[in-house]
Design a binder for these strands. Structure first.
Lengths: 199, 199
DNA sequence: TCTATACCTGAACGTCTGTTCATGTGAATT
DNA sequence: AATTCACATGAACAGACGTTCAGGTATAGA
């Protein structure tokens, strides 16, 4: 027998779940394999998690909470909206590099009814943060007047999918600077190009 | 017995596959249900498709081919890059409205090894089209000089995720015009706002 | 040493899955 | 009427899955 503290076992299982779920997706992943990767018996998994669903939810939530904390801090603490946007983008791009697997799981399991509400809530919150940045930018005069809700959706969409592209394909690397620049200045030629000298 | 032409049966099965795969994802979807929705027996499905995998591939490919045809036409035929970009965005947004389910399947099954190569190929092709538009725009002087490959990735990413947002949530509606405008002009205030008078 | 507690095991159960196949049937052809 | 052929069926098979549970073992305290 392999003796460990309960806390360590639970952590092991969560780590293993991350590996297996991201490799296989929820439906294809199976408890036997998660147990094997964790170095624990099948029954052992059920000591710490009621069932497969709860295990899945548990580690999905961890990731979302972490991101919420980081991004909220940025939006609350920063003065310049341009800089806040930059940092907001940076957190997401860094997370894409660091947690490729987690992102793939997120996206892949979009349709799951039982995790859906949490994910929607998370997306709504992130959207709210972007709206906040844009609102402030318009008030300070740095950003142009626009349909805040629509623009926020587009930006948040861009961020999500840049993350996805990077998670899917290791060779795809989008720099925070490049993304920030495009969002601020657009494609057209005769726009000002001062954005990277962040004020 | 329910007698039909082979062609009609095959079409029925493909339609049913679309419904069931998009509701459940590949792994969770099962042949019995696809058969039921198609109004055909379980064995009947195997008359037209070697196995579940081939059935899945078959209908995924149909959708991708359709999009490739439409977008290629736009990029080849148009003179103004600004207009080409607009039409390119429009095709994608319209497709998001029309084929919500298909998009969800696409995204959800990202990790499947057997469909992966086709999807990657599709994404590469779409990327090439965007690069073509940008390249031409820079040559005509309409677009500013930029890292074409990176910008294309970001734009393509934006498009994908706007589609995804709309597929996930019926209430999310991003207009082609809004997206086009943001891509061209960015967020900053003192940029020119002439893009919507498409030349 | 004994006992209580926390941790762990993996065979066994019931259910669901993709796939096969022996069999059947309507319609066209002879 | 007999034959042929394309289309159709669903019970049966083999394997995989989530979950349970009767039992096992290391450790700490008495």
């Amino acid at each position: 027998m392999n003796r460990r503290s309960g806390i360590e076992s639970k952590k092991r299982i969560l780590d293993a779940a991350m590996v297996v779920f991201s490799r296989q997706g929820y439906a294809k992943a199976n408890i036997r394999e998660i147990a094997k990767v964790a170095g624990i018996s099948v029954g052992g998994v059920y000591l710490y998690f009621k069932n497969k669903e709860e295990l899945y939810l548990s580690f999905i939530k961890d990731g979302m909470n972490d991101m919420m904390r980081k991004t909220e801090m940025i939006v609350e603490s920063h003065r310049s909206p341009i800089r806040a946007l930059y940092d907001f983008l940076k957190v997401h791009i860094n997370s894409a590099i660091k947690h490729r697997e987690l992102i793939l799981v997120h996206v892949r399991e979009l349709g799951f009814t039982f995790a859906l509400e949490h994910k929607r809530q998370y997306m709504r919150n992130q959207l709210r943060l972007v709206e906040k940045i844009i609102d402030r930018g318009i008030r300070t005069g740095e950003f142009r007047r626009c349909n805040v809700k629509e623009v926020a959706k587009i930006i948040m969409g861009t961020v999500r999918s840049v993350m996805l592209s990077m998670a899917m394909d290791k060779d795809v690397i989008v720099t925070t600077k490049g993304l920030h620049d495009l969002i601020l200045n657009g494609l057209l030629r005769n726009n000002n190009q001062l954005a990277d000298n962040r004020r």
